[in-house]
Simulated scan of single mutants.
Amino acid sequence: MSAASQLHFKSFNYTGQAPGPRVIVMGATHGNETCGTEAIRRVMAQIDDGQLAIQRGSVTFVPIVNPLAYAQGTRSGDRNLNRDLFPKANPQDFEDRVANWLCPLLAQHDVLLDLHSFNAAHGEPFVMVGPPDNDGPLEPFSHMAQERALARRLGVRRFVTGWMAAYGGGVQRRTRNSGAGAAELETVLRYGVGTTEYMRSTGGYALTLECGQHRDPQAPEVAYRAIINTLAFLKVVDAPEPQPLPFEEMEALQMVVVHDKLDAGDRFTREWASFDAVSEGEQIGVRADGTPVTAEFSGRILFPDTNAGPNQEWYYMTRPNPQFGRE
């Protein structure tokens, strides 16, 4: 019997006596991102000790979403849980089994706060936010105002939108180049769905908060503050309402385009980190055949992946999103 088969899934629910929103807060969706786990346990201890009371609605805490990856101290168990997150009738790996437990749990809630950290050597916390309200085929949504109001109260100043649109554009380009049909396109697009995208698909809204570098001692504090602010803003607890970050202090970025690594020999010309500024025409990398790769506009680079394989996402480009919060 495998060690993975001995693992179980665990969540903790606190329900108040008055009606209110159903909130779920998660940590360790990726097993080596433990700041959320620490913060959740800190908040639960305060509730259990009577320092914090759940007055309205409910909050469910999942300190460790992926117990296999957490036990291994790795990002993933068998694969990245935060892709292709759907219930599976015939689960093929451990993350499929997580999804079969997690997806119905998410669907029972109204609001998700998913706490993450990042691997880059430097960088400040940021929050990934969903699309504007729309009824389109890629990511229909109707809670933009509530989601963005919460995002502005998490305690960070940097906001990133456009994940599914940029990811979907890259998928469409790859499938056109490969001659794939519509069915394959839909299958590959599903791979872009993680916890927040699945939560939105059930009618709720959701935020992914990147709390800092994995080992940054401040990352658990960022996660803790975000949890408390979320519960206070949604009036699940009686606490002073956190004030929104002023527009003039915000840096909002829109993911615009993803560039793929085409050959194993493609390489960056320097060690890039997420949110490094690039100028239009600046060289970012070089293709295996010597062709320079340059920025098509001035903006910031996001998720540069030196270890990407051929035909995988190599880096994203973002540009300022001045309309964020004002739509």
Results as ranks from 00 to 15, higher is better:
Ala3Arg: 05
Lys10Ala: 15
Gln17Asp: 13
Pro19Gln: 09
Gly36Ala: 08
Arg42Ser: 13
Val43Asp: 01
Val43Arg: 01
Asp48Ala: 14
Ser58Trp: 06
Pro63Phe: 03
Tyr70Gly: 00
Gln72Tyr: 00
Gly73Leu: 00
Gly73Ile: 00
Gly77Arg: 00
Asn80Glu: 11
Asn80Lys: 06
Leu81Met: 08
Asp84Thr: 07
Ala89Gly: 13
Phe94Trp: 06
Phe94Gly: 01
Leu106Phe: 02
Gln108Thr: 15
Val111Gln: 01
Asp114Val: 05
Asp114Phe: 03
Leu115Ile: 02
Ala121Met: 11
Ala121Ser: 10
Glu124Cys: 10
Glu124Ser: 11
Val127Gln: 07
Pro137Met: 15
Glu139Thr: 13
Glu139Phe: 13
Phe141Gly: 04
His143Val: 13
Ala145Trp: 13
Ala149Pro: 07
Ala149His: 10
Leu154Thr: 05
Gly155Arg: 00
Phe159Arg: 03
Gly169Asp: 08
Arg173Met: 11
Thr175Cys: 12
Asn177Glu: 15
Gly179Met: 07
Gly194Thr: 04
Met199Thr: 06
Ser201Glu: 02
Tyr205Ser: 01
Ala206Gly: 03
Leu207Arg: 02
Leu209Ser: 11
His214Val: 01
His214Ser: 01
Arg215Lys: 11
Gln218Lys: 12
Ala219Ile: 03
Pro220Arg: 01
Val222Thr: 03
Ile227Ser: 03
Thr230Gly: 02
Leu231Gly: 00
Leu234Lys: 05
Lys235Val: 10
Ala239Ser: 15
Glu241Trp: 08
Pro242Asn: 10
Leu245Arg: 08
Pro246Trp: 10
Glu249Leu: 09
Ala252Asp: 06
Val256Phe: 07
Lys261Pro: 01
Leu262Met: 14
Phe268His: 05
Arg270Ala: 12
Phe275Thr: 01
Phe275Arg: 04
Glu282Thr: 11
Val286Ser: 04
Val293Arg: 09
Ala295His: 09
Ser298Pro: 04
Ser298Asp: 08
Gly299Phe: 00
Phe303Ala: 04
Asp305Tyr: 13
Gln312Phe: 03
Glu313Val: 06
Tyr315Ile: 03
Arg319Met: 10
Arg319Ser: 12
Pro322Lys: 04
Glu327Ile: 13
